[in-house]
Each structure stands twice: as structure tokens, then as C-alpha cells.
Amino acid sequence: MTPVAGSGPTNTARPRGASLRLLSRALFAVVLAALAAVVVRLRGTGGTPRHRGGWRELSAEDFVEPVEE
């Protein structure tokens, strides 16, 4: 039987190879992003920045003279 144009199932789907390629690229991007995040996370020292000095309770002298750093 001679196939008539438009009567058969049209093949609009992406070829199997192209889908796999897309999937592998997406996976590669995700893995790359995760690796970058891990590197940034491990290289960063985290926590709060270091500082010098500390708090001292105001003494009786401080209440007489103006407080100064």
C-alpha cells in the first residue's frame, strides 16, 4: 500500500541520541555546579570574621569620667 502524505504517524519526537545528549549535558552541568559549590564551601573559612579586643564592664571610674575608647 502506498503511503499517503499526512495519513501516517508523524515523527515529531527528538531522536533518541539527541535526548540522551541533552540529558548528559544537563547532568554534567549539575555535577559541575555541585563541584564548584563544594570547592567554594571548603575554601571558605566560614564563621565570623576575626576581631581584636573585647567587652569590659564599666567601672566606678567610668561613671565619674566621660567614657572613652
Binding site: 576581631h51 581584636r52 567587652w55 569590659r56 564592664e57 564599666l58 567610668d62 561613671f63 567614657v67 575608647e69
Partner: peptide, 24 residues
């Protein structure tokens, strides 16, 4: 204000001063 802070200190609210510098 310093007299008021001294009175608060007697009542248990202690004022403190930061001596030093911020993040190095």
C-alpha cells in the same frame, strides 16, 4: 546619664564598653 547607668549597674543591669578594633 552616667549616674543613671551607675544606678542601673547597682540594680544588676551592667553597661559594658568595647575596647579594641573590629574585624581584623
Amino acid at each position: 546619664p552616667r549616674e543613671a547607668l551607675a544606678e542601673l549597674s547597682r540594680r544588676g543591669v551592667k553597661a559594658e564598653i568595647f575596647e579594641g578594633v573590629g574585624p581584623a
